[in-house]
Structures are given as structure tokens and as C-alpha cells.
Amino acid sequence: MSDPDPGRPGHFIGWADRLAAHLARLAGEAGHEFGYANLAVRGRLLADVTGPQLDAALALAPDLVSMVGGGNDILRPKADLDAIAQNLETAVLRIQATGAAVLLATPVDPADAPLIRHLRGRHAIHTANIFSIAQKHGCYVINQWGLHALRDWRLWAEDRIHMTSEGHRRVALSALSALGHSTDHTDWTTPLPPPPPVGRRAAAGANAAWARTHLAPWVQRRLRGESSGDAVTAKRPSLLPVEPPGTSPAD
């Protein structure tokens, strides 16, 4: 989301697609074939990620599975962080039993996020659980919590939930580095130059506009038991060759 694909109007790229492009290039240079599927659906809870999404992923007999989930769960009023961690660990073991490697990702530190910063403790516990699972079972981890540049709101879209293209680009390089490949760390870890100061009145106005436009509809969906991804399906359910970001996919 919020990473427009110039080659396909109305579609998005995202850090996973960008990572796949990097891996496809490296595989090609080594003389190997590379296929990539993206089964993620926005707004889904971890039960869907580790259930139907994981079932579909393992049916493809992958060598590497990136699994990012739990973020939507910990926003719920009665989130059970221990149960979330157990669900995630069980899924990791299921993936590894097939011989595939696992790439996990921590949440971003919400210290500077309006409203959500009050849930920083939950995000920190979820981050600690992810690192504990990864250490115990030998998973790769995208350390978004430690990527301080992501705490700059200029790397986030107007909804304050999804990253901009620059944010996705940085996370893709962070993921590539986490997988053990060489990257220019200064390129994706260096924060943007300091922004111009924003007065209290302007900040309050921006927060109010965001609450009306994005927070209120989110709350209404929660009350109705709905999700923004209810009518959304995976954009890339099959393993396909990877085209460079911004180009039309092969038929």
C-alpha cells in the first residue's frame, strides 16, 4: 500500500516486491531461476496469516517464507501477546519442517505516533517475542524497530499506517541485509534531513484531519467486525518470474 506502481496504475509495489526484485537479480547473477509469490492481504489478523495464507504458501514448496503478522492483533483491546507469540512460533516450526527458511519482521517503534504511541509497550513485547522466536529457531529478522529513520512521518503515507515508496525501499534493503546480502547501510539507515518546525496549531489540525479521514472509518469497521481487506485477495498467488519494480508483469 501507498507505494504506487508506475507500470500498473491503481496497483502498488511494496517492500516485499522490491526485496524479490533484489533476490531475483542475485539469483540471475548466480545462474539460478527465481520465482516469487505474494499472498499477503491487508487488514488480516495473525490467524489468517498463519492459517489460509500459510497453507497456500507451503503448497508452493518455497525455499524462503517471509511472515509478517500480529500487528493488527495487538491493536485490539484484549490482545493476548503470549497467544500471538505461540501462534507465530508454531507457524515458524511448520515452515521449517518443510526445509524452508523463515524471514520475520518486527513492528516499527511507535514512540512518535499519535495515539498508537500509547501502545508502545505492546509493540515492544511483540518485538521481543519475535526476536526470541528467531533466536531460538534460527530465523532471519527485519529489525524495523531499530530502523530509527522509519520514525520520520515523511516516510509514511497520509493514513499513517502504510509507508511511502521511500519507506518501502528502505525496508526492502533492510530485509536484504537481514538475509545476509551486502547493502549500503548508510543508504537505508540514514534519517532524512530535519524537517521544518510545525506549530502546535498546525499539528493539532493535521491530527484532527487524520482522525476524521482515517481513524474514524477504521473504528467503524472494527465495530462492524469488518476489515479493509475483507474483499481483497492475494495479488500474486502463484510463483512467477520477477519483473523490475515499476514495470508491467509478464503475462
Rank of each mutant, 00 (worst) to 15 (best):
M1F: 03
S2C: 04
P9E: 14
H11I: 01
F12T: 12
I13L: 15
G14T: 11
G14H: 12
D17W: 14
D17E: 15
A21H: 10
L23H: 03
L23N: 05
L23D: 06
R25T: 08
R25W: 00
R25N: 05
L26N: 02
L26D: 12
A27H: 14
A27F: 03
A27I: 01
E29Q: 15
A30G: 02
A30K: 06
G31L: 13
E33K: 01
F34R: 03
A37V: 09
A37E: 10
A40P: 04
A40C: 09
V41F: 11
V41E: 05
R42I: 09
G43F: 08
D48R: 14
P52T: 07
L54A: 01
A56T: 04
A59T: 02
L60V: 02
L60S: 00
P62F: 09
L64K: 13
V65W: 12
V65Q: 09
S66H: 14
G69F: 14
G70R: 11
G70Q: 10
G71R: 13
D73Y: 11
A79C: 01
A79I: 06
L81H: 07
L81P: 05
D82Y: 03
A85P: 04
A85N: 08
N87S: 15
L88I: 11
L88Y: 13
V92T: 05
R94N: 08
L103E: 11
L104C: 08
L104V: 05
V108A: 06
P110T: 07
P114N: 14
R117M: 12
R117Q: 14
R122A: 11
H126Q: 12
H126R: 08
A128N: 11
N129W: 03
K136I: 02
K136F: 00
K136D: 07
Q144M: 12
Q144N: 12
L147H: 04
H148T: 07
H148M: 01
A149I: 08
D152M: 06
L155I: 14
A157D: 14
E158N: 06
E158M: 00
R160M: 10
R160K: 08
I161F: 02
I161R: 00
M163V: 08
T164P: 12
S165E: 09
E166L: 15
G167T: 09
G167M: 11
R170D: 10
R170G: 09
A172T: 03
A178S: 15
D184V: 06
H185T: 12
H185D: 06
W188S: 02
W188A: 02
W188G: 01
T190A: 00
P193E: 05
P196T: 13
A204Y: 01
G205F: 00
A206I: 00
A206C: 02
A206G: 03
A209F: 00
W210L: 01
A211I: 10
T213Q: 10
H214I: 01
H214D: 06
A216H: 01
A216N: 03
P217C: 12
V219E: 03
Q220R: 13
R222S: 13
L223A: 11
S227P: 04
G229Q: 07
D230F: 07
A231T: 15
V232A: 14
K235M: 06
V242D: 07
V242M: 06
P244N: 07
T247Q: 04
P249V: 11
D251E: 08
